[in-house]
């Protein structure tokens, strides 16, 4: 446990000192800000048009209703897509930076086992990303209240929160493969390439109707991005995501344990 705490402390310090934490928070902040902007536009389209805001696109995106369910939908759908990118950025940084900065060699021949270091990195990623989602939800609520969106109910707030966290959690569970690509690819580009590829494949699988069986489609389906197909998401979808997560974690641990660190 002491070794894990030491490794986690080290990972947390690196994250705190890095600008990546700030950039990802700012990047994610766009989501509630844009959602709030759409609400302002939809609440009073004439005034928005007079202000020079493009109301047509906002109406296309949200079916033209300014209320809390629509606002939460924007957050949820933005979370499913933006989350994949932002979470992948965080994961790519946490693992890939050791190779980009050539610091990995300082983590290999030390008393703290490599598995503990990898575990600490995964825990940090989970806490960091979940923290970001909570932050966005709270900021989102604040913006919603400030914009004075109608049709609020505590039950709606709770359901939306659960959906948001479930979508976020499922997205996080798909990050181990990003970590594997950051490690085996020794840097940032392979994991980010992988994340973009899965994002594209997730859309294609969703369109073809296999999304509930394709792990990278499941969060997108759950967020409602794929419309009525979201109903297909069932226990089998969660199991597929879980198995993918386990496979990614196992592969990442195995790689750190046994791959040659010749560079």
């Amino acid at each position: 446990m002491r070794a894990f705490l030491a490794a986690f402390w080290a990972e947390a310090l690196k994250a705190r000192r890095s600008k990546v934490s700030l950039f990802t928070a700012i990047g994610f902040l766009i989501l509630p800000l844009v959602g709030g902007l759409f609400m302002i536009i939809l609440k009073d389209p004439e005034r928005a048009r007079a202000m020079g805001l493009i109301s047509v696109k906002a109406q296309l995106f949200t079916a033209g209703v300014a209320d809390w369910p629509t606002y939460f939908d924007i957050l949820l759908q933005g979370m499913a897509i933006g989350g994949t990118i932002v979470f992948a950025l965080i994961t790519a940084w946490v693992f890939g930076r050791e190779f980009a900065d050539h610091t990995v060699k300082e983590l290999l021949a030390i008393p703290t086992p490599r598995g503990i270091i990898v575990g600490a990195k995964f825990v940090l990623i989970a806490l960091w990303t979940l923290g970001l989602v909570l932050f966005i939800f709270v900021i989102g609520l604040g913006i919603g209240v400030a914009v004075d969106i109608p049709s609020w109910s505590p039950a709606l707030g709770w359901t939306s929160f659960r959906f948001l966290m479930t979508t976020a959690f499922l997205t996080i569970m798909l990050m181990p493969f990003v970590a594997l690509f950051a490690s085996a690819g020794r840097g940032y580009l392979p994991p980010l390439g992988w994340a973009i590829l899965t994002l594209v494949l997730a859309q294609i699988a969703g369109i073809l109707g296999w999304g509930d069986w394709f792990p990278w489609s499941v969060p997108v389906l759950l967020s409602g991005m794929a419309g009525p197909r979201a109903e297909q998401v069932g226990m089998h979808s969660y199991i597929v995501v879980l198995l993918t997560s386990i496979a990614g974690i196992a592969a990442t641990f195995a790689w750190w344990r046994s791959a040659d660190q010749a560079r």
């Binding site: 490794a7 080290a10 310090l13 690196k14 000192r17 890095s18 600008k19 900065d101 030390i110 008393p111």
Partner: peptide
Amino acid sequence: PELTARENLDVARRLQG
């Protein structure tokens, strides 16, 4: 690079137990 020399050594100290 974003840690000071002392922080880098502190990270190493903790990982060394």
